[in-house]
Computed example of a mutant assay.
Amino acid sequence: MACCPTEERIKGAFSTAKTSKVGTGATAKKVSTTIYVFAEELEDDKIKIQAVNENHVPTGPTRTISRDDLLRDFFPDPEYYHKTMLPQMRELAKQIASGERHLKNGQPFTAELSFANALNLDEQNIRANFGIGLVYLRRGEKEKALEVLRRLVTLDAAFEKRHKHLFNEFGINLRRNGMYEQALDYYGRALDFAKDDEHLFFNIARTHIERRDLGRAREALEQALAINPGFAEARDYLAKLARGPAGLKLTPSS
């Protein structure tokens, strides 16, 4: 017997009107503002919604509500989604992809332009922030990289699992640039979100080794091995530490 067709999942722009009072006394008046969100249906009747900025792209933290809550509090706006929001979302994705491609090809100045264009559309975009931070680190522009670092540590989404490769790469580049204290502060923030990540502890250990704090390096390696006893590289470094400073012949940072 044929099954009923699956109901299409919600994905698009929704709006709600917010009324606020402006002025006082006889000059007071009510002003209505339309607020847009991007909504995407997940499993179990849950909807992920995200605010839309003045450039018409979803930005900032997301929150989850029920389908009933969405349909009660917001109105679908397919015309705004298809004619305004979707083109801007595609442009943002295009600029980020361009920046990442140029960075991979060793073209940091061209990459910077693309990432800057992306940040003009969404200053909180995680991939664009990491990308331009990597540009500055690879060019040795430490002060600019620190500005990006300060911005990233305030963004919880930067340390979500889907961005793991980005935050690992950024931390490694901080270490490679001799920015050890900043790297450790950054890794400490990452630990708030990934306490069971053995590679994070390994990167912390590498940072301590390069700043010659071997005791803390040993502690971090032991934590990495407690999470993953089969982590061969961490075990190898721990064996080198056991032989003392003479056993450490640091290879180029990886």
Rank of each mutant, 00 (worst) to 15 (best):
D122W: 01
A246L: 10
A246W: 03
D68R: 15
D196W: 05
E147F: 12
K144M: 12
V52R: 00
E112W: 11
L225D: 02
T24H: 13
Y36G: 00
P252E: 10
E112Q: 15
Q88A: 13
A28Y: 04
E7K: 12
E112D: 12
P245A: 12
I35S: 04
N55E: 13
V52C: 04
L103A: 05
D185Y: 03
Q95H: 15
M85Q: 15
E7A: 11
K11A: 10
M179K: 03
E219S: 09
S98N: 13
V153L: 04
I10G: 01
H208E: 07
N105P: 08
T110K: 14
G60R: 05
T64G: 04
Y186M: 06
G244N: 14
G171S: 11
S114T: 01
D68G: 12
A158E: 02
N117D: 09
I132E: 02
K240P: 06
P87M: 10
G171N: 10
A217D: 03
R162C: 02
T19R: 15
A217G: 09
T59Y: 13
T251E: 15
K46A: 09
R189L: 07
K11P: 01
A205V: 03
P5C: 08
P229Q: 08
K29N: 11
S254P: 00
V57I: 15
M85G: 00
A39Y: 01
R127D: 07
A190Q: 06
G106I: 13
F201V: 03
S20H: 05
F75S: 14
N177V: 06
A242S: 13
V52S: 00
M85C: 06
T62P: 04
I10D: 07
N53A: 15
P252V: 06
G131E: 07
H165R: 14
V52N: 01
Y186S: 01
R90P: 00
V148Q: 03
T110P: 07
L221C: 08
R139H: 03
D45W: 09
G60K: 10
V57W: 04
E169H: 10
R150Q: 13
Y136Q: 01
T110F: 12
A242V: 01
G178R: 05
K21S: 09
R189F: 08
G25R: 08
D68W: 07
E8D: 11
I49M: 11
I65A: 08
L241F: 06
A51G: 05
T64M: 09
L70Q: 05
V52I: 14
F109H: 11
H163C: 12
N228F: 00
Y81R: 03
I204L: 04
Y36C: 02
H102E: 13
N168L: 14
S98K: 13
R63C: 09
R139C: 05
R138T: 10
A242P: 02
Q95C: 06
N125A: 14
L149S: 03
H165T: 10
K195P: 06
V135K: 06
I204A: 02
H102N: 14
P108N: 13
L146A: 07
E210G: 10
N228M: 07
S32L: 02
L121P: 04
I47T: 05
V31R: 07
I172Y: 08
L221H: 04
A232F: 09
I204V: 13
L119H: 07
Y81K: 02
